[in-house]
Amino acid sequence: MNPELQNRIVVVLVRARNSNNIGAVARAMHDFGFPHLRIVTEYVPPLETARSAVDASRVLAEARTFVSVAEAVADCTLVVGTTAVGERALEHRLEALAQASGKILTEAANSASRVALLFGSEKTGLSNEELSHCHWLLTIPMYEHEEMRHPSMNLGQAVAVCLYELVRSEESIGNVGLREAARAEDVERFLGLFREVLGETGYVQRYPANVRETQLRRVVLRMGLTAEDVPVWMGVMRQMLWKIRQGGRNRSGQEETDPRR
């Protein structure tokens, strides 16, 4: 696989606690040639005990830790979460791995920034708040046994299957010249300004059920902002804030009336 593509794809483990599972992930990354591992955790796991990380010491040594998903994906233009689905009520577009891999590679091939693959904890997967940072989700189709309510895969196995599919799918994509997507940190900046506008207009107070942080983030991600779009929209939002704080006065200094009256 093209090393440049592999360098742009990062594996993000969220709340992974078992060092051997982390070691298995590192081994899969090493075997398929993906160097960048990021770990979101409140404490640094004892990676030196990860006996399953055969030949993957460099991946573990260079792994970066973060305290939040937002920080871990700040430099990424596409964030894809993984889920076994089960009985979860999904609020994102869901793609099977075979279809998702081509879209991930296309983004990686057409962006100077990175693509993040998020994997949740061994027990609970990704929370709704963590999923709110994702543009869309992928799942690995599995055979459903009658005696199993929710078929799922070991963390190390899931990462290995996803990375194998990316390697296998590389030949099927082409460089289609997409515009560069906005980085996650820029989307978060826009989201903060958007919330500020909603607060100044009174929308937050009038419709509190519509402005939960996770809900607004999903709305913004569905806009598909590009790197060129963000400064334009930020300018629009700042102009709106300035106008609102001027008390609705027009250029002549006269108070404007509500057009709905």
Rank of each mutant, 00 (worst) to 15 (best):
V79E: 10
V79N: 08
V79Y: 08
V80N: 03
V80W: 05
V80P: 04
V80I: 14
V80L: 06
G81F: 03
G81H: 02
T82N: 01
T82K: 00
T83L: 00
T83M: 00
A84W: 02
V85Y: 00
V85W: 00
V85K: 01
V85P: 01
G86L: 03
G86E: 05
G86Q: 00
G86T: 02
G86V: 00
E87G: 08
R88V: 13
R88P: 04
R88D: 09
R88L: 07
A89Y: 04
A89V: 14
A89C: 02
L90H: 07
L90A: 06
E91F: 10
E91D: 13
E91A: 13
E91H: 14
E91W: 06
H92K: 03
H92F: 04
H92T: 05
R93F: 10
R93Q: 12
L94Y: 13
L94W: 11
L94N: 05
E95V: 03
E95S: 11
E95W: 15
E95G: 00
A96W: 07
A96F: 13
L97W: 11
L97C: 05
L97D: 04
Q99R: 13
Q99F: 10
A100M: 09
A100G: 11
A100H: 06
A100S: 10
A100Y: 10
A100V: 04
A100C: 11
S101I: 02
S101Y: 08
S101V: 01
S101L: 06
S101K: 01
S101R: 00
G102Q: 12
G102E: 13
G102V: 08
K103E: 14
K103N: 09
K103L: 15
K103H: 15
K103P: 01
I104H: 09
I104Q: 03
I104F: 10
L105M: 12
L105F: 06
L105G: 05
L105T: 06
L105S: 05
L105E: 01
T106N: 03
T106R: 14
T106A: 07
T106V: 15
E107Q: 14
E107F: 02
A108N: 10
A108C: 09
A109L: 11
A109C: 06
A109E: 13
A109M: 15
N110F: 07
N110C: 07
N110L: 07
S111C: 12
S111V: 08
S111P: 07
